[in-house]
Structure formats: structure tokens, C-alpha cells
Amino acid sequence: MLEVKGLTKRFGANVAVDAVSLSVDRPCMIGVIGRSGAGKSTLLRMMNRLTEASGGEILFDGRDVLSLTGREKRGWQSDCAMIFQQFNLVPRMDVVSNVLHGTLGRRSTLATMFSLYPEEDIHTAIDILDRLGIAQHAAKRAEALSGGQQQRVAIARALMQDPKVILADEPIASLDPMNAQTVMEALRRIHDEDGRMVIANLHTLDTARRYCDRILGMRDGRIVFDGTPEQLTTGVARDIYGAGTDFSEAATSTEIRDTAPVAAVERRLAKVTV
């Protein structure tokens, strides 16, 4: 489905992403980990075409993503939805209108100016909010919601695009542990129930192990690890973060383990059983 070949981004003399290559042949949930400045956000932004690549290729279902312009580029950005750490909502606008902004890519300029939404889209937006457990807040201003609720609104807006791929750039970095769990469970359900590819930059190793099928580790703009949660041992984590034997949970605000959490193992066993 997705093939990245030699993807590179330079900012002057600095190489933020250095000849990254990866292949994804089926929808799955992928976590990208690495220290700050490793190139994780730049990688996702190039995939979505928010940042232009300096070199390389991105192919999705055989289509050259980096060559798209105009309407075709906007179409790709609808197919490849982006979720940000800071939510990027309109604070003083009601929740359902924020969700409906996910349809802007396929609406006319006049309809956008006057906020004219088809009744079918409004019902779809409310259904998505209900699926994410926040339909009761549809009429509230976005700024009245908690951080976790706002992030779920941002996820709902992404789902309004009906994307094939969801890119999440540090979606839980500014959330407390309980809200972070709620958001990650929502993203996991979207993958499991809809069959959408989800790629998320994450700053905690236990989160990556628990929710993701595949984990990429980035260091200095390159992918230095590509494996399963079970393969992400303490030693591997030290290599990804460029740390010594004193590497501890303080480095990622999480507990470092040599095996995947029981919940992740149980989920995989359940999939095999089904």
C-alpha cells in the first residue's frame, strides 16, 4: 500500500530526514519513536505534503504522492488525514462545526464561506462524535472541552475526511495518562474496525508496545529499528535513543521492559483465535 524510498529533507546544511525507506503492504498501526529532533514529525509532514521533500519517493497504491499538485494534492491530503499534538481546532466554534471542517476539501468556496453543510454530513459528524463518546458535547464550543475531549474532536474531524491513512503527530504528548489512554484506544479501534492505516509519533515506549503492531525507531533522521513490540527490548531502546547503560524510564516517561505488556499479547492472541 505504502512505499517510501530514500525520503530526505534538508533544512540548509541540516538533514532532518536522511534517506528513509520503508514498505507497508497492509493496513496496520505503526508507532514511530525516537528522541526529540530525530525527524519523526518531519517524516509525517512530508507524507501528508505539509512539508516538501528534498528527495526520494512516496508511493501509495502505486501513485507518486510527491508529484501531486493542485486538486490531486488536496485529494491526497483528504486521503491522508493529519492529527496534531495541539489539536488545531477553532476554539470559539462549536464541536460539530469543527468536525465538519473535515469536509472542506470537497466543498465549494461559497459553501465554505457561509458554513453550508448538507444534512447528511451533519448526521455523519454527530455519528462519529457518538462513536468517540463525545456526542453530548456537539453544541459546545471546542474551547470548553478538556484536552482529551478536544483531541477526540480532532480525530472525528479526520474521520470526516474518510481517509485511507491517519497520521498522528504526538497525539497524546500534552494529555494526562487517563486521557492519553482514551485517545490511543480510539485510534486503535479506528484501525481495527475500519481497516485504516494509522501511523503515530509517540514519546512513550509502553504506549508504542501496547497499541502498535509495528514500531519504527528513528535516530538522527534515519530508521534504526523496524520491528514488533516484542522486539523492542531495553537494549534496542538504548540504541534508538543513543543512551548508555544508565538509560531509564525517565528518558521516555515510561517503564522500559524487555517484553510486551500482557494486554498487547492478549490482543494478538485474540486476533489469531478469530
Rank of each mutant, 00 (worst) to 15 (best):
P177V: 01
M184R: 04
I83E: 11
L187Q: 08
R71V: 10
R74A: 05
G105S: 14
G133I: 06
G75R: 13
F114L: 08
F11Q: 12
R74V: 05
M197P: 02
L22W: 01
L269Y: 02
H203C: 13
T254R: 10
M93Q: 13
D162V: 10
V95L: 08
H137S: 02
G62F: 07
E185W: 08
I155W: 05
M46L: 11
A186T: 06
G195S: 03
F87L: 01
D64L: 01
V96W: 12
G221F: 14
A168P: 01
R268G: 08
G37D: 01
C80V: 13
A173C: 10
D61E: 15
T124E: 03
M82Y: 12
D258H: 15
L89E: 02
V99R: 03
M93R: 14
R152F: 01
G39L: 11
Q150M: 07
D206P: 04
F11Y: 15
A144M: 11
S253K: 00
D18R: 05
T252L: 09
D127F: 02
T254A: 12
D246V: 11
D220L: 13
R257T: 14
M197T: 13
A111E: 01
L202R: 04
I126E: 14
P27A: 07
N14W: 00
S41W: 06
I134P: 00
L129C: 05
N179D: 03
L50I: 11
V272M: 04
L100Q: 14
F84L: 07
Y211W: 09
D169I: 08
M184Q: 10
L100G: 12
R45L: 03
K5T: 04
R49G: 00
A139P: 06
S248N: 09
E72N: 13
R238Q: 14
R157T: 11
G70K: 05
R107A: 11
R189M: 09
L205S: 09
L100W: 13
F247M: 14
T182P: 01
A158H: 08
E143V: 11
T51E: 15
R214E: 00
G147R: 08
P177T: 00
P261N: 05
T207P: 04
A135V: 15
V265I: 11
K164D: 14
T252I: 05
Q161K: 15
V65W: 10
R189Q: 07
R219C: 15
A81D: 03
D127M: 03
I134C: 00
Q181G: 02
D130M: 05
L44I: 10
G55D: 10
V262S: 13
D194W: 12
P261E: 02
A111V: 00
R214P: 00
R74Y: 07
D130F: 02
R35L: 11
L2W: 07
M113N: 01
R189W: 01
I155T: 05
V99H: 04
A208Y: 01
Q77C: 02
S67P: 07
I30V: 10
G147M: 11
A243G: 11
L104V: 14
G6E: 14
D64Q: 05
A250S: 13
N88C: 09
S41R: 10
I122G: 00
